[in-house]
């Protein structure tokens, strides 16, 4: 396997410096929430706009909820409420669902790290480093969502998304290979990114909108890396999962596998209140 352990450590250190810079902007963002928490809907709720948008999203509800219609029904009810207080409550519910997705991601990557081929002696060091770093980034997201929920007067969500948790628990016995773990992680990252992309257009609190938008692209990046890793594993080229990668040796298709859509699809978005505090 071609990798530079020391180089990888240095790259992660550089990444940590960039991360520290980015994190410094979070207190400012969250400080806005105190003020915005008092007026989360400063432009006023547009009943028609909210209802229309929610209805246009009807076809994009997550398949798992399609049979019940429960999540989107609640979402439409919340969005159509009109009053500023209702908009604030809806924002909190949306943020709680987002936090529940982060909780699940943290837990899932944690489980993955207990597996020998992800976090143990037989792990690809780049994959291991990615899983560790990604878990840490989800923890940052979790903290940010929790702080914002508090500032909006809500209760942080400390539990994982209950519906997706069942999916993860069902998948656990089958996590016998790196490919299986990558597939499960990809499902979670795609779901989180899709949820945040949709939510960015729904949230009324400007701070919530900004925070969500600042995270959605990061989840999309996690998904891009996982897709690339998945493809290389499927192609029997696990040895090419290295940093820096052997670019000249990579198959042509590796250049596009990470970003299959010109517009990030929202079909995998979770129902708005799926993970809200009950």
């Amino acid at each position: 396997m071609d990798y530079d352990q020391q180089g990888l450590g240095e790259l992660l250190e550089e990444s940590q410096d960039l991360h520290a810079d980015a994190m410094r902007s979070q207190p400012e963002l969250l400080a806005e929430a105190t003020e915005l928490g008092q007026q989360p809907n400063r432009e006023g709720t547009d009943r028609d706009e909210a209802t229309t948008f929610a209805e246009r999203r009807r076809s994009l509800a997550a398949p798992v909820m399609a049979g019940t219609g429960l999540g989107l029904g609640l979402a439409i009810a919340g969005l159509a409420a009109g009053a500023a207080s209702a908009a604030s409550a809806t924002d909190v519910q949306i943020l709680q669902t987002q936090q529940s997705l982060e909780n699940l991601a943290i837990a899932t990557y944690g489980v993955a790290l207990t597996l020998p081929f992800i976090g143990g002696h037989s792990a690809n060091p780049v994959v291991k480093a990615f899983v560790m770093k990604t878990r840490s980034q989800h923890q940052d997201h979790d903290n940010a969502f929790g702080s914002l929920i508090k500032s909006l007067g809500g209760k942080p969500q400390n539990s994982p998304d209950p519906v997706l948790l069942k999916v993860v628990n069902k998948a656990k016995p089958g996590l016998k290979s790196a490919a299986a773990v990558v597939a499960l992680a990809l499902e979670l990252e795609d779901g989180a990114a899709a949820t945040y992309v949709r939510d960015a257009a729904i949230l009324k609190s400007v701070t919530a909108k900004k925070l969500t938008a600042s995270i959605m692209g990061v989840e999309a990046q996690h998904a891009a890396v996982l897709r690339a890793v998945q493809a290389l594993l499927a192609g029997g080229a696990a040895g090419d999962i290295a940093l820096p990668p052997p670019v000249a040796a990579l198959p042509a298709a590796a250049g596009k596998v990470g970003f299959p859509n010109p517009f990030f699809p929202t079909a995998a978005a979770r129902p708005l209140t799926e993970g809200s505090v009950r």
Partner: peptide, 12 residues
């Protein structure tokens, strides 16, 4: 470019 692909937790 040989850099960590997801360097920050929050887009800036």
């Amino acid at each position: 470019l040989g850099r960590y692909p997801v360097p920050v937790s929050f887009a800036t």
